[in-house]
Design a protein around this nucleic acid. Structure first.
Lengths: 246, 246
DNA sequence: GTAATAGTGTCTATAAGACACTATTGT
DNA sequence: ACAATAGTGTCTTATAGACACTATTAC
């Protein structure tokens, strides 16, 4: 990964004061069937192939190049490492604590990570390996986001804390912002939308009250279509008409 | 400002892909008497002494050195440029849009700014110049934060947008978090606390309802002291017992 | 018909806003 | 006494939660 150029820069800088380098990482959430059957939040992780934390799972990310905005860098990194193009993406936080540098690594450059969080629809969760070879694809895989639902308890660097913070932000934001729609396809039933909220919040919601609260919500449009094929009364399909990304 | 070292790094990097440099800036708010008499939000700004935007007002800030956390860097920059030590500080956002680079500057390095916002008490708003000389202190001065209250409509770089975003965050956060206390001294009356909220929110609040809402608030402790010296019934003094910084 | 989910109506508890009212001080 | 602010009580309105009830489909 470090080119001859960046090595040269580091060598110059190491003698005096090393400027922190900039990286972009992203926490991507998608809703998939969980271990207990009910839908759960999952995220794609990348297995580290070098020290530090070799072999451990880490957030997808990479360096920031000079010619792109921060969000563009996040999207590009996402496409390169996972093949995903999220429907929603938003900046989470800039992490730059000193304990982030692994003390075992000699001359390790300090890294400041600007972390984004993103949502992808369940039907767009196909992962691409870093190469195109099928054998390489084991280095990118989906994991439950929450350790309480079978997710990994520890990740490389401080990525476990970052994921927890992203989970907190998603849970806070779903209560007042139009965020849940980005985990669903173009058309969905109110029951499906409620299941999204239930999965994110981790508790069941009253169908009647949930429906009434959505009545006052903008950008939620009832269509004339109904979801056929169910075993009982077919529910009406709705559509989200607001902006696709904030 | 650019040392021989950082120049050397830039020269190496310019030939191929220039890594973005990292800076920390801070929006500092304090409550001071406004132009119409009522208390208003003010912020300290630094006049630029070099291109680009020479002569214009900008947020205090500076580079991130390798040996400090992001928040420590913000505090150190604040002390160096303004002499202030805020009671509350929190990360706002990382700004890295490409339009931030001024096109007039040849070979300008792209700067990603991690911006913090902070609150200082009115009794701690004495500014220090960058040198100790009285003549130099004109390059740091307080300005109303909101253009609607006499603040500067344009600032250097994209700093006007950044200040507006910080104002939005402060106004949002004062409604659900314990931040207003950090604009006041150790002891204060409920009327003073209400004036803080009114100044930040830009509208008057019902004294009776405001008092009742605070009843359920944690970390607000009634003392046995009263504010003497007023022209009428002396109000009780309260104290904030929560954490000093988040 | 029966099971199961879709969708509606209503009661209650809680909280916010409006505002009348009492209390206590300086002048 | 009077002005002015401190502080209390109460009424109205909006909203969230609980839950009974009706509607429509597959089998």
């Amino acid at each position: 990964m470090p080119s001859a150029l960046s090595r040269g820069v580091a060598n110059v800088a190491e003698r005096a004061q090393l400027p922190p380098s900039l990286a972009i990482s992203t926490v991507i959430f998608a809703l998939r069937p969980g271990h207990e059957g009910c839908p759960t939040l999952w995220m794609p992780l990348v297995r580290r192939v070098r020290e530090p934390f070799r072999g451990q799972w880490a957030l997808p990310g990479g360096p920031l190049t000079a010619a792109e905005s921060l969000e563009d860098a996040a999207r590009r990194n996402l496409a390169e490492t996972t093949g995903l193009a999220p429907a929603y993406i938003e900046q989470l936080y800039a992490f730059g604590g000193l304990r982030r540098a692994h003390r075992d690594e000699v001359g390790a450059q300090r890294v400041v990570s600007i972390v984004y969080w993103a949502l992808v629809r369940a039907d767009e969760t196909a992962l691409a390996g870093q190469t195109g070879l099928a054998g390489e694809q084991e280095n990118v895989a989906w994991h439950p986001a929450d350790p309480a639902h079978g997710g990994p308890g520890t990740l490389a660097f401080d990525h476990r804390e970052i994921v927890d913070y992203a989970l907190w932000r998603l849970r806070s934001k779903i209560e007042y912002a139009q965020v849940a729609y980005h985990l669903l396809g173009e058309m969905f039933t109110l029951a499906q939308l409620r299941e999204v909220h239930e999965a994110v919040l981790g508790r069941s919601l009253d169908p009647a009250n949930f429906r009434r609260q959505l009545k006052g919500t903008p950008h939620l449009e009832a269509t004339d279509h109904y979801l056929e094929g169910g075993r009982h009364r077919p529910p009406r399909l709705y559509r989200y008409t607001g902006p696709r990304s904030l």
